[in-house]
């Protein structure tokens, strides 16, 4: 029986080991749902980041697993995952090893928790490799990448609908990585991935979305772009570490120096791609 699931997102290879789950039916169930959840990102490559999944978190009352928090330690490379004050896992950014203890939750909840844990692990792995995850909708038009940033309910999915004739990457969360002074977008399993393609694409322009009754595109200043960009990076528990905050700042600075940032005000009826074409 397969004991590991290998996943590759934004060129980061994860090896998720379920060896420590003793109950065979649980292991089988979790492997099935994990493979289904990440079907477009399954890989045969050996992992560079290792996640051990265990049983063993005792529950004495009903808990909402959405209350799980990642807590950074200012003094070392370890982040702990906490649920109502109890440690249920850790991520070590020095060794690229992580561990998560599952409770007797439903399969859906286990996969949800594993997915959130994987997202946090990926963010930490990316930050150390000139990248980060960002709340965004990614679109590829004529081999060029466009990134649309907004918080939840900020219009990312609307932009994805308006971009159906192009290749839409994730409509909620994309990874950005720098190679020299070039930036690339990678889709992620978070958000909808309409066509299942996971290849990277060179990023050309970044738009901050603003819901409005009119259509307007205006270029933003450096400071304005940087502060808005920073607030759309997945940061839970991470910003508490000065070294990582410094690293993110360094990379966003490179991004702002090499790309143009715009504010796109639009309504549901706006023909955004006609306006973008002129920029």
């Amino acid at each position: 029986m397969t004991k590991t699931v290998k996943i590759k997102i934004a060129d980061v290879c994860f090896e998720i080991s379920l060896n420590d789950i003793k109950i065979r039916s649980l292991k089988k169930d979790l492997i099935f749902w994990t493979k289904r959840r990440f079907k477009d990102f399954l890989s045969k490559e050996r992992g560079g980041f290792f996640i051990d999944v265990e049983e063993g978190y005792a529950i004495d009352k009903w808990e909402d697993i959405r209350d799980v928090k990642l807590v950074g330690d200012k003094n070392n490379s370890r982040f702990t995952l906490r649920l109502n004050g109890s440690e249920i896992g850790f991520i070590d950014t020095r060794t690229n090893k992580a561990n998560i203890k599952m409770g007797a939750w439903r399969s859906n909840d286990k996969v949800f928790l594993l997915s959130s844990f994987l997202e946090a692990s990926l963010q930490l792995a990316l930050i150390q490799n000139s990248g980060f995850l960002v709340h965004s909708c990614g679109v590829v038009k004529e081999k060029t990448g466009y990134l649309f940033l907004a918080p939840a309910e900020g219009g990312k999915t609307t932009v994805a609908h308006k971009s159906r004739k192009f290749r839409v990457l994730s409509d909620d969360c994309n990874a950005l990585k720098r190679e020299g002074n070039d930036w690339f977008i990678y889709p992620t399993p978070w958000g909808r991935l309409p066509n299942g393609k996971v290849e990277k694409v060179r990023l050309a322009k970044i738009f901050f979305l603003k819901k409005a009754k009119y259509l307007e595109i205006k270029e933003l200043s450096f400071g304005n772009s940087l502060i808005r960009f920073f607030s759309q990076i997945h940061m839970s528990g991470i910003i508490e570490r000065t070294d990582l905050a410094e690293k993110i700042l360094e990379e966003i600075e490179n991004l702002a120096r090499n790309l143009r940032f715009f504010e796109l005000s639009f309504s549901k009826k706006s023909r955004i791609w006609e306006a973008i074409g002129n920029k």
Binding site: G223, L226, T242, E246, L249
Partner: peptide, 27 residues
């Protein structure tokens, strides 16, 4: 503060307040 990574570019400053997870933009 040592816990505040910062940048000044094109005359504007961005400060990251690690203690409160806030970002401050200075003109």
């Amino acid at each position: 503060s040592k816990n505040v990574p910062w940048r000044i570019i094109e005359g504007e400053a961005i400060l990251v307040n690690v203690n409160s997870s806030d970002i401050v933009h200075l003109n």
